[in-house]
Computed example of a mutant assay.
Amino acid sequence: MALKIRIAYLIDTISSDKAGTEKQLLNIIERLDRDVFEITLVCLHESPWMLRNRLPCEVLSLGYRGFLKPGFPAVMWRYLRVLNSRRFDVVQTFFEDSIFVGFLGKVLSQNKHSLIVSRRDLGLGSDEPGYHWIYKSIMPLIFGFIDGIATNAMAIKTNLIEQEKASPEKIQVIGNGIDVPVFSRNIPSIIQQYQSVIWLGIVANLKPVKRIDIFLRALAYIKDNGSGERVRAVVLGEGRLRPELVQLASDLGIAEQVHFAGALDNVNDYLHCIDIAVLCSDKEGLSNAILEYMACGLPVVVTGAGGNGELVDETNGECVPTGDPEALAKSLVKLIEAPQLRNKLGANSLEKVRQNFTWGKIIPQWESYYRSLVPKQVPGSDLIGEG
Protein backbone atom coordinates (compact mmCIF):
# COMPACT_ATOMS: atom_id res chain seq x y z
CA MET A 1 0.00 0.00 0.00
CA ALA A 2 1.29 3.46 -0.91
CA LEU A 3 2.56 5.65 1.88
CA LYS A 4 0.72 8.87 2.53
CA ILE A 5 2.21 12.27 1.80
CA ARG A 6 3.25 13.68 5.18
CA ILE A 7 2.58 17.39 5.59
CA ALA A 8 3.57 19.62 8.51
CA TYR A 9 1.95 23.03 8.83
CA LEU A 10 4.34 25.25 10.79
CA ILE A 11 2.65 28.33 12.26
CA ASP A 12 3.27 30.68 15.18
CA THR A 13 0.02 29.65 16.89
CA ILE A 14 -3.72 29.34 16.30
CA SER A 15 -5.30 32.13 18.32
CA SER A 16 -8.78 31.83 16.78
CA ASP A 17 -10.72 30.00 14.10
CA LYS A 18 -12.09 33.34 12.88
CA ALA A 19 -8.84 35.11 11.87
CA GLY A 20 -8.13 34.99 8.14
CA THR A 21 -5.02 32.82 7.83
CA GLU A 22 -5.92 30.52 10.72
CA LYS A 23 -9.46 30.04 9.42
CA GLN A 24 -8.20 29.12 5.96
CA LEU A 25 -5.57 26.74 7.34
CA LEU A 26 -8.01 24.92 9.61
CA ASN A 27 -10.40 24.46 6.70
CA ILE A 28 -7.63 23.05 4.51
CA ILE A 29 -6.60 20.62 7.25
CA GLU A 30 -10.19 19.44 7.72
CA ARG A 31 -10.82 18.95 4.00
CA LEU A 32 -7.64 17.31 2.66
CA ASP A 33 -8.09 13.65 1.72
CA ARG A 34 -6.89 11.62 4.70
CA ASP A 35 -6.44 8.58 2.48
CA VAL A 36 -3.69 10.53 0.73
CA PHE A 37 -2.31 13.03 3.26
CA GLU A 38 -1.04 12.62 6.82
CA ILE A 39 -1.16 15.99 8.57
CA THR A 40 0.58 17.46 11.61
CA LEU A 41 0.15 20.99 12.92
CA VAL A 42 3.40 22.29 14.45
CA CYS A 43 2.90 25.48 16.46
CA LEU A 44 5.72 27.60 17.79
CA HIS A 45 3.66 28.04 20.94
CA GLU A 46 0.20 27.17 22.23
CA SER A 47 -2.52 29.78 22.60
CA PRO A 48 -5.37 29.84 25.13
CA TRP A 49 -7.75 29.15 22.23
CA MET A 50 -5.85 25.99 21.32
CA LEU A 51 -6.11 24.72 24.89
CA ARG A 52 -9.90 25.21 24.85
CA ASN A 53 -10.65 23.74 21.44
CA ARG A 54 -10.15 20.47 19.64
CA LEU A 55 -8.13 20.79 16.44
CA PRO A 56 -8.62 18.63 13.33
CA CYS A 57 -5.21 16.91 13.40
CA GLU A 58 -2.26 16.06 15.63
CA VAL A 59 -0.72 19.16 17.20
CA LEU A 60 2.85 19.66 18.40
CA SER A 61 4.11 22.75 20.26
CA LEU A 62 7.73 23.91 20.31
CA GLY A 63 7.58 26.31 23.30
CA TYR A 64 8.84 29.26 21.26
CA ARG A 65 9.01 32.71 22.90
CA GLY A 66 11.05 34.63 20.34
CA PHE A 67 14.16 34.05 18.27
CA LEU A 68 16.11 36.58 20.38
CA LYS A 69 15.20 34.78 23.61
CA PRO A 70 17.67 32.49 25.42
CA GLY A 71 15.44 29.46 24.81
CA PHE A 72 15.56 29.69 21.02
CA PRO A 73 18.31 27.04 20.57
CA ALA A 74 16.17 24.57 22.54
CA VAL A 75 13.22 25.38 20.27
CA MET A 76 15.32 24.60 17.21
CA TRP A 77 16.58 21.37 18.81
CA ARG A 78 12.98 20.27 19.40
CA TYR A 79 11.97 21.19 15.87
CA LEU A 80 14.90 19.29 14.35
CA ARG A 81 13.98 16.22 16.41
CA VAL A 82 10.44 16.45 15.03
CA LEU A 83 11.68 16.79 11.45
CA ASN A 84 14.09 13.88 11.74
CA SER A 85 11.65 11.55 13.46
CA ARG A 86 8.47 12.35 11.49
CA ARG A 87 10.16 12.43 8.07
CA PHE A 88 7.78 15.00 6.61
CA ASP A 89 7.58 15.27 2.84
CA VAL A 90 6.30 18.87 2.87
CA VAL A 91 6.57 21.64 5.47
CA GLN A 92 4.46 24.74 4.90
CA THR A 93 5.11 27.84 7.00
CA PHE A 94 2.81 30.73 7.96
CA PHE A 95 3.95 34.12 9.30
CA GLU A 96 7.48 35.48 9.64
CA ASP A 97 8.68 33.73 12.80
CA SER A 98 7.66 30.35 11.39
CA ILE A 99 9.36 31.14 8.09
CA PHE A 100 12.61 31.71 9.96
CA VAL A 101 12.28 28.49 12.00
CA GLY A 102 11.27 26.55 8.90
CA PHE A 103 14.25 27.88 6.96
CA LEU A 104 16.72 26.86 9.67
CA GLY A 105 15.06 23.45 9.84
CA LYS A 106 15.45 23.03 6.09
CA VAL A 107 19.15 23.89 6.29
CA LEU A 108 20.02 21.89 9.42
CA SER A 109 17.74 18.86 9.31
CA GLN A 110 18.81 15.45 8.11
CA ASN A 111 15.31 15.03 6.70
CA LYS A 112 15.12 16.25 3.12
CA HIS A 113 11.72 17.83 2.64
CA SER A 114 10.05 20.42 0.46
CA LEU A 115 9.63 23.77 2.20
CA ILE A 116 6.76 26.07 1.23
CA VAL A 117 6.56 29.65 2.47
CA SER A 118 3.04 31.09 2.61
CA ARG A 119 2.67 34.78 1.79
CA ARG A 120 -0.94 35.88 2.17
CA ASP A 121 -0.78 39.67 2.46
CA LEU A 122 1.28 42.73 1.58
CA GLY A 123 2.23 43.56 5.16
CA LEU A 124 0.58 44.90 8.28
CA GLY A 125 1.44 48.55 7.84
CA SER A 126 2.02 50.32 11.15
CA ASP A 127 0.97 47.17 13.05
CA GLU A 128 3.97 45.21 11.79
CA PRO A 129 6.42 44.35 14.62
CA GLY A 130 9.59 46.40 14.46
CA TYR A 131 11.91 43.41 14.45
CA HIS A 132 10.41 42.06 11.21
CA TRP A 133 12.90 44.15 9.24
CA ILE A 134 15.36 41.38 10.06
CA TYR A 135 13.22 38.85 8.20
CA LYS A 136 12.87 41.16 5.23
CA SER A 137 16.63 41.57 5.02
CA ILE A 138 17.27 37.83 4.88
CA MET A 139 14.24 36.88 2.77
CA PRO A 140 16.20 36.78 -0.51
CA LEU A 141 18.51 34.21 1.09
CA ILE A 142 15.53 32.20 2.32
CA PHE A 143 13.92 32.29 -1.13
CA GLY A 144 17.03 30.63 -2.51
CA PHE A 145 16.57 27.58 -0.25
CA ILE A 146 12.82 27.03 -0.33
CA ASP A 147 10.94 24.92 -2.84
CA GLY A 148 7.81 26.98 -3.23
CA ILE A 149 5.94 30.14 -2.26
CA ALA A 150 2.18 29.76 -1.86
CA THR A 151 0.11 32.90 -2.12
CA ASN A 152 -3.57 33.68 -2.55
CA ALA A 153 -3.51 36.62 -4.97
CA MET A 154 -1.80 37.63 -8.20
CA ALA A 155 -1.09 41.03 -6.62
CA ILE A 156 1.07 39.35 -3.98
CA LYS A 157 2.86 37.28 -6.63
CA THR A 158 3.67 40.46 -8.54
CA ASN A 159 4.94 42.15 -5.38
CA LEU A 160 7.11 39.15 -4.51
CA ILE A 161 8.71 39.22 -7.95
CA GLU A 162 9.17 42.98 -8.20
CA GLN A 163 10.00 43.92 -4.60
CA GLU A 164 11.53 40.77 -3.10
CA LYS A 165 13.11 39.30 -6.25
CA ALA A 166 11.40 35.94 -5.81
CA SER A 167 11.60 33.49 -8.69
CA PRO A 168 8.27 33.42 -10.60
CA GLU A 169 8.65 29.67 -11.13
CA LYS A 170 8.51 29.06 -7.38
CA ILE A 171 5.25 30.96 -6.80
CA GLN A 172 1.90 29.16 -6.74
CA VAL A 173 -1.32 31.18 -6.54
CA ILE A 174 -4.28 29.43 -4.91
CA GLY A 175 -7.23 31.54 -3.83
CA ASN A 176 -9.02 31.43 -0.50
CA GLY A 177 -11.88 29.00 -0.06
CA ILE A 178 -15.33 29.65 1.34
CA ASP A 179 -18.66 27.91 1.89
CA VAL A 180 -21.77 29.59 0.54
CA PRO A 181 -23.80 30.09 3.73
CA VAL A 182 -27.39 29.07 4.19
CA PHE A 183 -29.57 32.17 4.23
CA SER A 184 -29.94 33.39 7.80
CA ARG A 185 -33.40 34.23 9.12
CA ASN A 186 -31.94 35.72 12.30
CA ILE A 187 -32.38 39.46 11.85
CA PRO A 188 -30.26 41.46 14.31
CA SER A 189 -32.28 43.76 16.53
CA ILE A 190 -30.65 46.94 15.23
CA ILE A 191 -31.59 45.96 11.66
CA GLN A 192 -35.16 45.24 12.73
CA GLN A 193 -35.33 48.66 14.32
CA TYR A 194 -34.40 50.44 11.06
CA GLN A 195 -35.70 48.24 8.25
CA SER A 196 -36.65 51.05 5.88
CA VAL A 197 -33.11 52.42 5.44
CA ILE A 198 -30.17 51.41 3.26
CA TRP A 199 -27.66 49.48 5.36
CA LEU A 200 -23.93 49.62 4.68
CA GLY A 201 -21.63 47.12 6.38
CA ILE A 202 -17.94 46.52 6.90
CA VAL A 203 -16.26 43.44 8.41
CA ALA A 204 -12.77 44.22 9.67
CA ASN A 205 -10.53 44.23 12.70
CA LEU A 206 -10.34 47.74 14.12
CA LYS A 207 -6.68 48.36 13.37
CA PRO A 208 -4.89 51.03 11.33
CA VAL A 209 -4.40 49.08 8.09
CA LYS A 210 -8.17 48.52 7.74
CA ARG A 211 -8.85 52.30 7.58
CA ILE A 212 -12.28 52.30 9.20
CA ASP A 213 -11.73 56.06 9.50
CA ILE A 214 -12.07 56.33 5.71
CA PHE A 215 -15.42 54.53 5.91
CA LEU A 216 -16.64 56.94 8.60
CA ARG A 217 -15.50 59.99 6.65
CA ALA A 218 -17.28 58.66 3.56
CA LEU A 219 -20.48 58.32 5.62
CA ALA A 220 -20.10 61.91 6.77
CA TYR A 221 -19.68 63.01 3.14
CA ILE A 222 -22.84 61.12 2.19
CA LYS A 223 -24.75 62.80 5.03
CA ASP A 224 -23.46 66.26 4.11
CA ASN A 225 -24.58 65.76 0.50
CA GLY A 226 -28.16 64.85 1.23
CA SER A 227 -28.31 61.04 1.29
CA GLY A 228 -27.49 60.45 4.92
CA GLU A 229 -31.01 60.40 6.34
CA ARG A 230 -31.81 57.07 4.71
CA VAL A 231 -28.44 55.41 5.29
CA ARG A 232 -27.10 53.59 8.35
CA ALA A 233 -23.94 51.57 8.80
CA VAL A 234 -22.74 48.67 10.91
CA VAL A 235 -19.10 47.95 11.76
CA LEU A 236 -18.52 44.24 12.43
CA GLY A 237 -15.21 43.79 14.21
CA GLU A 238 -13.22 44.64 17.31
CA GLY A 239 -9.80 46.08 18.04
CA ARG A 240 -7.73 48.65 19.86
CA LEU A 241 -8.92 51.55 17.68
CA ARG A 242 -12.55 51.24 18.75
CA PRO A 243 -12.52 54.19 21.21
CA GLU A 244 -10.88 56.44 18.62
CA LEU A 245 -13.33 55.41 15.90
CA VAL A 246 -16.37 55.89 18.14
CA GLN A 247 -15.06 59.37 18.95
CA LEU A 248 -14.43 60.10 15.27
CA ALA A 249 -18.01 59.13 14.42
CA SER A 250 -19.21 61.55 17.08
CA ASP A 251 -16.92 64.33 15.83
CA LEU A 252 -18.20 63.81 12.29
CA GLY A 253 -21.81 64.03 13.43
CA ILE A 254 -22.72 60.49 12.40
CA ALA A 255 -22.69 58.70 15.76
CA GLU A 256 -26.44 57.99 15.51
CA GLN A 257 -26.02 56.38 12.11
CA VAL A 258 -23.06 54.07 12.86
CA HIS A 259 -23.40 50.97 14.99
CA PHE A 260 -20.28 49.21 16.30
CA ALA A 261 -21.43 45.61 16.73
CA GLY A 262 -18.07 44.21 17.86
CA ALA A 263 -16.61 40.79 16.99
CA LEU A 264 -19.23 38.18 16.15
CA ASP A 265 -19.18 34.41 15.83
CA ASN A 266 -21.40 34.61 12.76
CA VAL A 267 -21.37 37.79 10.67
CA ASN A 268 -23.76 36.27 8.14
CA ASP A 269 -26.78 37.27 10.25
CA TYR A 270 -25.82 40.86 9.45
CA LEU A 271 -24.54 40.29 5.91
CA HIS A 272 -27.81 38.73 4.83
CA CYS A 273 -29.59 41.91 5.94
CA ILE A 274 -27.38 44.72 4.67
CA ASP A 275 -27.54 46.27 1.19
CA ILE A 276 -23.94 47.21 0.35
CA ALA A 277 -20.66 45.85 1.73
CA VAL A 278 -17.47 47.87 2.06
CA LEU A 279 -13.75 47.31 2.64
CA CYS A 280 -11.36 50.27 2.58
CA SER A 281 -7.99 48.81 3.67
CA ASP A 282 -4.63 50.26 2.70
CA LYS A 283 -3.19 46.74 2.32
CA GLU A 284 -4.83 43.38 1.59
CA GLY A 285 -4.05 39.94 0.27
CA LEU A 286 -7.12 38.11 -0.94
CA SER A 287 -9.69 39.33 1.55
CA ASN A 288 -11.81 36.76 3.39
CA ALA A 289 -14.21 39.58 4.27
CA ILE A 290 -14.84 40.34 0.59
CA LEU A 291 -15.43 36.67 -0.13
CA GLU A 292 -17.91 36.56 2.75
CA TYR A 293 -19.72 39.56 1.28
CA MET A 294 -19.84 37.94 -2.14
CA ALA A 295 -21.01 34.57 -0.77
CA CYS A 296 -23.95 36.43 0.80
CA GLY A 297 -24.85 37.93 -2.57
CA LEU A 298 -23.82 41.52 -1.85
CA PRO A 299 -22.59 44.32 -4.12
CA VAL A 300 -19.18 45.39 -2.90
CA VAL A 301 -17.29 48.69 -2.84
CA VAL A 302 -13.59 48.30 -1.96
CA THR A 303 -10.29 50.07 -2.23
CA GLY A 304 -7.95 48.83 -4.93
CA ALA A 305 -5.49 47.40 -2.40
CA GLY A 306 -3.72 44.09 -2.98
CA GLY A 307 -5.98 41.40 -4.36
CA ASN A 308 -9.23 43.36 -3.92
CA GLY A 309 -9.38 44.03 -7.64
CA GLU A 310 -9.15 40.30 -8.31
CA LEU A 311 -12.47 39.85 -6.52
CA VAL A 312 -14.33 43.06 -7.29
CA ASP A 313 -14.81 44.78 -10.64
CA GLU A 314 -17.63 46.54 -12.49
CA THR A 315 -19.62 43.27 -12.67
CA ASN A 316 -20.14 43.02 -8.91
CA GLY A 317 -19.18 46.39 -7.44
CA GLU A 318 -16.55 49.09 -7.63
CA CYS A 319 -12.91 49.62 -6.70
CA VAL A 320 -11.85 53.07 -5.51
CA PRO A 321 -8.43 54.52 -4.66
CA THR A 322 -7.05 53.89 -1.18
CA GLY A 323 -7.28 56.71 1.34
CA ASP A 324 -9.97 58.63 -0.57
CA PRO A 325 -13.22 58.97 1.42
CA GLU A 326 -14.85 61.17 -1.22
CA ALA A 327 -14.33 58.57 -3.96
CA LEU A 328 -15.68 55.89 -1.63
CA ALA A 329 -18.71 58.01 -0.82
CA LYS A 330 -19.50 58.70 -4.48
CA SER A 331 -19.41 54.99 -5.34
CA LEU A 332 -21.65 54.22 -2.38
CA VAL A 333 -24.16 56.91 -3.37
CA LYS A 334 -24.30 55.44 -6.87
CA LEU A 335 -25.45 52.11 -5.40
CA ILE A 336 -27.64 53.65 -2.71
CA GLU A 337 -29.70 55.28 -5.46
CA ALA A 338 -29.92 52.19 -7.70
CA PRO A 339 -31.66 49.19 -6.09
CA GLN A 340 -31.87 47.19 -9.33
CA LEU A 341 -28.15 47.67 -9.93
CA ARG A 342 -27.45 46.51 -6.36
CA ASN A 343 -29.43 43.33 -6.97
CA LYS A 344 -27.63 42.63 -10.25
CA LEU A 345 -24.16 43.18 -8.81
CA GLY A 346 -24.98 41.10 -5.74
CA ALA A 347 -26.11 38.16 -7.88
CA ASN A 348 -22.87 38.40 -9.84
CA SER A 349 -20.88 38.34 -6.59
CA LEU A 350 -22.49 35.08 -5.55
CA GLU A 351 -21.92 33.52 -8.95
CA LYS A 352 -18.22 34.47 -8.87
CA VAL A 353 -17.83 32.67 -5.56
CA ARG A 354 -19.62 29.56 -6.82
CA GLN A 355 -17.48 29.42 -9.93
CA ASN A 356 -14.09 30.12 -8.37
CA PHE A 357 -13.85 30.06 -4.58
CA THR A 358 -15.93 27.29 -3.03
CA TRP A 359 -13.89 24.69 -1.16
CA GLY A 360 -14.81 22.18 -3.83
CA LYS A 361 -12.81 24.32 -6.26
CA ILE A 362 -9.91 25.20 -3.92
CA ILE A 363 -9.00 21.91 -2.17
CA PRO A 364 -8.16 20.04 -5.42
CA GLN A 365 -5.69 22.82 -6.23
CA TRP A 366 -3.92 22.35 -2.88
CA GLU A 367 -3.85 18.58 -3.27
CA SER A 368 -2.38 18.85 -6.75
CA TYR A 369 0.23 21.34 -5.55
CA TYR A 370 1.38 19.13 -2.68
CA ARG A 371 1.66 16.14 -5.00
CA SER A 372 3.84 18.16 -7.37
CA LEU A 373 6.33 18.79 -4.54
CA VAL A 374 6.80 15.14 -3.59
CA PRO A 375 9.73 13.53 -5.39
CA LYS A 376 8.74 10.61 -7.59
CA GLN A 377 11.05 8.33 -5.61
CA VAL A 378 8.99 8.86 -2.44
CA PRO A 379 7.09 5.58 -1.90
CA GLY A 380 3.47 5.93 -2.98
CA SER A 381 3.79 9.26 -4.76
CA ASP A 382 3.14 7.78 -8.20
CA LEU A 383 0.05 5.96 -7.00
CA ILE A 384 -1.22 8.99 -5.10
CA GLY A 385 -0.63 11.22 -8.08
CA GLU A 386 -3.07 9.20 -10.19
CA GLY A 387 -6.06 10.38 -8.08
Rank of each mutant, 00 (worst) to 15 (best):
S61M: 04
N176W: 06
R6M: 14
F100W: 12
R52E: 14
Q365L: 15
I149Y: 03
N176R: 11
L373D: 06
L286S: 14
E256P: 00
A74G: 14
S167L: 12
N152Q: 11
C319P: 00
V75Q: 05
L279H: 08
M139N: 10
I146A: 04
I222Q: 01
G253I: 00
G148E: 07
L41W: 02
R240V: 15
A220G: 14
L328D: 01
R87V: 11
L124P: 00
M294N: 03
V378I: 15
S331A: 13
G123F: 03
R211V: 08
P188N: 09
I11A: 07
D282K: 13
G148Q: 06
D224S: 15
L219W: 03
E367T: 02
R240F: 08
V301G: 04
I254A: 06
K165E: 10
V302E: 14
K4Q: 14
S47V: 02
C57W: 04
F95G: 03
D324Y: 06
V374W: 01
D121C: 08
N27G: 06
I116F: 02
H272G: 06
R87F: 04
S372G: 04
I191E: 03
C273H: 09
G177C: 06
D324L: 12
R371Q: 13
C296I: 11
E318K: 13
R87H: 15
Q172F: 11
I11H: 01
I222K: 03
L383H: 14
G317K: 04
L55E: 07
I171K: 08
K157F: 05
Y221A: 09
W49G: 08
I363A: 10
P188H: 05
Y194A: 07
E58T: 11
I7L: 11
D213F: 09
L160S: 05
K112I: 12
C296N: 14
G304I: 08
G20W: 02
D97P: 01
N316V: 08
P299I: 04
P56M: 10
A327D: 02
S281P: 00
L219M: 15
V278T: 07
G307M: 01
S331Q: 12
E169Q: 13
P321A: 06
I28Q: 12
V267P: 01
N356C: 08
I39W: 05
A153K: 02
Y221H: 14
A277W: 02
G239S: 10
V333I: 15
G130A: 14
G228S: 00
R342Y: 03
E292L: 08
Q377K: 13
Q257W: 02
A277E: 07
S331D: 13
K18F: 09
I363T: 10
K112L: 13
L108E: 11
I222R: 02
P56H: 08
N205L: 14
T13R: 14
K170P: 00
C57N: 04
E58C: 01
S250D: 15
K210T: 05
I274E: 00
V267L: 10
T303N: 01
Y293R: 01
D147T: 01
G144F: 07
S196F: 04
G309F: 07
